[in-house]
Design a binder for these strands. Structure first.
Lengths: 340, 340
DNA sequence: AATCATGATGTAAACCTTTACATCGGCGAG
DNA sequence: CTCGCCGATGTAAAGGTTTACATCATGATT
């Protein structure tokens, strides 16, 4: 019982007075073994405290029960709550979660591929669509993979994200309902799908309200705090200032907020600002930020569920799952000032 | 090369025209094999793209190259930056990181023990000293383990944390140097070691400045935002209000801050408030919070290094590593008001 | 020249499972 | 009574490594 060596299937077989094959069957195909035998085996398992050796099992079966989660940056505050969803779902199905981060280094990403060659992982969850390997290698033999947030590459690999269009639409509708008509959109890189989608939600909202699109009010950046500040400076060099700044993410919104405060303006008195993502800090900014909440735990759960399906079926039922984002109304939005 | 099956050691051996034993040796004990052979083997490895099957290896060796990281809550924003340190260090030594969270559920924690019985993990990193299993099981055969933040149990298991005494001392010294003499200490549960240590730093600082200890100014809570608010209310029911609130963590400090603002006070004009931990939100509070930064990535790095040492030696060189915490001065501390 | 030590390599067993196939016993049908 | 079938169980191979031990060649020592 408290031997130093963990019990093997053979120990169980000896005690239950059956063969190891029967033990294995009693565990994995209980209906194939007589009830009386099953009982003996279960007792023996209890006595020995036997746990199947996962290594031997994986070796024999040719597949592991681990899922590799690769993110460019696991320090990202968004990451951990998604991880919760991923881990819960995986565990519920007997899988474990392995994590790796690439820091956007393709070399590092490549090393994670070894996890599959060496059978240490059965599938992969990939964040933000950035394929962490050189392109040539992967098309050849990529493990079953599900993306989070954005499609990986543009083909084949299913992913779970949030309905950016709808989210952006909710924001712009709120601003419009408050009375804003000159609404700037501050994006990040146009290579990111999220940018395109959020912007299209923005444009759809304007169109629905009969507000003509003003390209002067659409800026690009790189999604950082600094880039929000920069965009603000650009806008201030023009004559027709917006009354509201709709930002592609919370980082950018923070940059805009800081910039406006530095210029002595009050939010939401003088300008309204919105974000997207609802990072943990958003509620602590002053004013607290009105933004769109990503249902992070749910995203993790769905992504993992999809991957597990992929692993059993070899064919995904869906290639894209978009979750509904929620508008979180805080204190950074108000009606536009009467006149400026 | 682009076979559907991954190459095995046998494929390499065939191409290199040696035995599989030689291939294995060429990989793991290169000095034991002739230079010419080594070359042939390396070429063959390159040709086949061979990666050793980790499952077979672990099975044979009786140990895996995975480290299990167990935390009560991986959604905790502190968690992910420590994870970065853990993962980097592990990877540098050929180990992978497996994660699990218990949500303080002993049952769940127990399931993770199976990872060791089933040879899926070689060692464990445990957060916050909460042993996630029932007590009886573990003393028997606990895997090599290193704690983070607090010692696990009170015996045997080494851990990596931060020098709470020194950190608290830095805070209280700052407050004293600003002129405060009535400094409240708002703690969490006295069962937590961090509480005891931070409080002892607080007391040492007062003593060094010749300020007598006033037990009325020391309160206990549970470390949550709400508990900070509550403690504040208690203090306000007394006559000798402090001029500064030194909180055991940032959550509590936030509660105090909100409470003071609700009462219409200005920070740091009317009162000074300090935290401990430097959670990501701390910089975004208003006023931004003066606090102690936990060197999180370093903690992760050291904890993993210690565990790896444990795994090779079976004897830890150190049983306790305390890292030096840094004071982060922001805007929540100022001199006390001239008189009240 | 015979022997021995040394260094390089090969052979085969072991790690623990799962599962195809073989075996065995009992029962129903002819 | 015999045959065939079926359900329950056992036997043994396979999965890819690592490594103790055996083997072999080479060069040095007597």
């Amino acid at each position: 019982m408290s031997n130093s060596q963990p019990a093997t299937i053979e120990d169980v077989a000896r005690i239950a007075e059956v063969s190891i094959a029967t033990v294995s069957r009693a565990i994995h195909m209980p209906e194939k073994v007589a009830k009386s035998t099953r009982l003996k085996v279960n007792q023996a398992i209890a006595i020995t405290g036997y746990t199947p050796n996962a290594m031997a099992r994986s070796l024999r079966l040719g597949r592991s029960n681990m899922i590799l989660v690769v993110a460019p940056d696991i320090g990202d505050p968004n990451f951990s709550s998604i991880l919760v969803g991923l881990e819960n779902e995986a565990r519920a199905h007997g899988y474990g979660v392995l994590i790796g981060h690439t820091q956007n280094d393709a070399q590092r990403g490549l090393e994670y591929l070894k996890f599959f060659n060496s059978n240490q992982a059965a599938g992969m969850i990939l964040f933000t669509g950035i394929l962490p390997f050189g392109h040539q290698t992967l098309t050849a033999r990529l493990p079953p993979t599900v993306g989070v947030f954005e499609p990986v590459f543009n083909g084949g690999i299913p992913y779970v994200g949030v309905d950016d269009v709808e989210g952006a639409r909710k924001v712009v509708d709120l601003l419009i309902s408050e009375g804003h008509r000159r609404i700037a959109f501050i994006g990040d890189s146009h290579t990111r799908l999220a940018y395109a989608r959020r912007r299209s939600g923005y444009e759809a909202g304007l169109a629905a309200a009969g507000i003509p699109l003003n390209r002067q009010l659409i800026l690009e950046g790189d999604g950082t705090v600094e880039s929000g500040r920069l965009a603000l400076e650009q806008l201030f060099m023009r004559d027709d200032l917006p009354t509201a700044f709709m930002c592609v993410n919370d980082q950018t919104a923070l940059g805009v907020t800081l910039g406006l405060k530095a210029r002595g303006y009050d939010i939401p008195q003088d300008f309204s600002v919105t974000g997207f993502d609802d990072v943990p800090q958003a509620g602590f900014m002053s004013p607290s930020l009105t933004t769109i909440r990503q249902p992070r735990t749910a995203i993790g759960k769905h992504a993992m569920a999809l991957l597990l399906e992929l692993l059993s079926d070899r064919a995904a039922s869906e290639t894209e799952i978009l979750l509904r984002p929620d508008l979180v109304i805080r204190n950074s939005v108000g009606p536009p000032p009467l006149r400026r």
